[in-house]
Amino acid sequence: MSFTTAQADGILGIAIFMSTLSFIGSSIIIASYFAFPNLRKFSFRLVVHMAVADWFSCIAYFMANPTDGSAACTFQGLLEQGCQLSSIIWTTIISLTLWMAVVKREEVHTHMRTFLIVGYVLPALTCILPLSTKSFVNTGAWCWIDGETTIGQVWRFLLFYLPLWGGVAFNGYTYYVVIQSMKNMFETQGTEVPAKYRALINRLKLYPLILCFCWFWATVNRFQNAVAPDHPQFWLFLLQVTFSHMNGLLNAIAYGLNPSVRDAWVDKLDEYPKLSRLARLLEHKDGSGNSGEGDVEEEGETAKMTDDDTAL
C-alpha cells in the first residue's frame, strides 16, 4: 500500500473506534446470556454465538498494526478471516433456523451440533489456504490476506467476499419466504396481521440489509484493489472501515437487544435507582404502555404458537 503513515494511522484509528462500539455491543449480548437464565433459549444462543464471532473480530483490530511477517501479523490475519466469516455464517444459520421453524415446522434445536461445526470449524478451515501460501501479510493498516498477489486476490474473493454476498442473497430470500409465510398464515384465517407481528416483519427485513450496509464499501474497495493494486484509494478505505466495523454493533442492536433483553437489564438496574430511572426512560414501550414482547418470544410463537425454544 502507498499510504502515508498519517493516512494509515487515520484508517486504523477509525477501525479501532468503530470496533470499540461493536465490541461493547457484542459484550452486552454475551453478558446478557450469562446474567439472565431466562434468556438462555435456543434462539438467543444463536445470537450469542454470532456476538462471540463479532467480539473476537474486534479483538483482532485492537492489535493495531503488527509488523509484516511477524507472528502477531499472521495471528491478526487469522482472527480477521476466521471470525468475520464466522459472524456472517451465523447470520445465515439464524435465518435458516427461522425458515426451518416457521415454514417447515421442524425442530431446529436438534441441529445445534451441525450449526456449531458450520459456524466455527468451517471459517477456521478457510484460514488454511491463505496460511499455506503465506498470504497473511500487512496490508497497510492491519494484517489480512495479501491484495497484491494473484493468489491473495483469489483467496480474498473465494474465501470471504463470495460467502459474504452468498449469505446476503440467502438471507434475503429466506426472510422473504418467512415473511410471506407469516402473512399467509393470518390471511387464511381472515384476520389482519397483528401489530406485534408487523413490527417483527419490519425487523426481519432489516437483517439482510445490515450485511449490505456494512460490507458494500469494503466490496467496492476490494474490486478497486484487484483492478489497480498499486493505486489504493484512501477515501475508499475510510468508507470501508467506517461501515464494515459497525457490523458487530448493528448485529447486537438488531438481533440481540430486543425488548426481552432490555427488560431484563431494566429489572437488574432496579438495584441502582438512579441508573434504573434512566434505563426506564430509554425502555421501549408498545402502544398499550406495556413492554413489548421480545423478538425471541414473538418469532417462536409464530413458528409454534407455544414455545420460543424452536425459532428466533
Rank of each mutant, 00 (worst) to 15 (best):
E301N: 14
P123W: 04
L125S: 13
Q233G: 05
T242A: 03
A264P: 03
W215G: 10
T149I: 03
M50Y: 09
V137A: 11
A101M: 06
V48Y: 04
G10T: 07
T97L: 05
E192A: 14
I94R: 08
H284P: 04
Q153P: 06
I16H: 01
G294F: 00
Q76V: 15
Q180S: 08
P232G: 02
I14T: 06
F42K: 02
R198C: 11
G167Q: 00
N251Y: 10
A303S: 06
Y120N: 10
H231S: 15
L46Y: 12
L211I: 05
G147V: 06
R105M: 11
K274M: 13
P123K: 09
Y161R: 12
M1W: 11
G292Q: 12
Q153M: 10
L85A: 05
R277M: 12
F237W: 13
V177M: 11
W235E: 10
R45L: 11
A8Q: 08
S70T: 15
I14K: 06
N202T: 14
T67Y: 10
K285T: 01
V154L: 01
G140K: 08
A252M: 09
I210T: 03
M182G: 07
G13E: 12
L162G: 14
E283N: 11
Q224F: 04
G77W: 00
T133H: 13
F36G: 00
R113P: 15
G25H: 05
G256A: 07
S260T: 01
E107N: 15
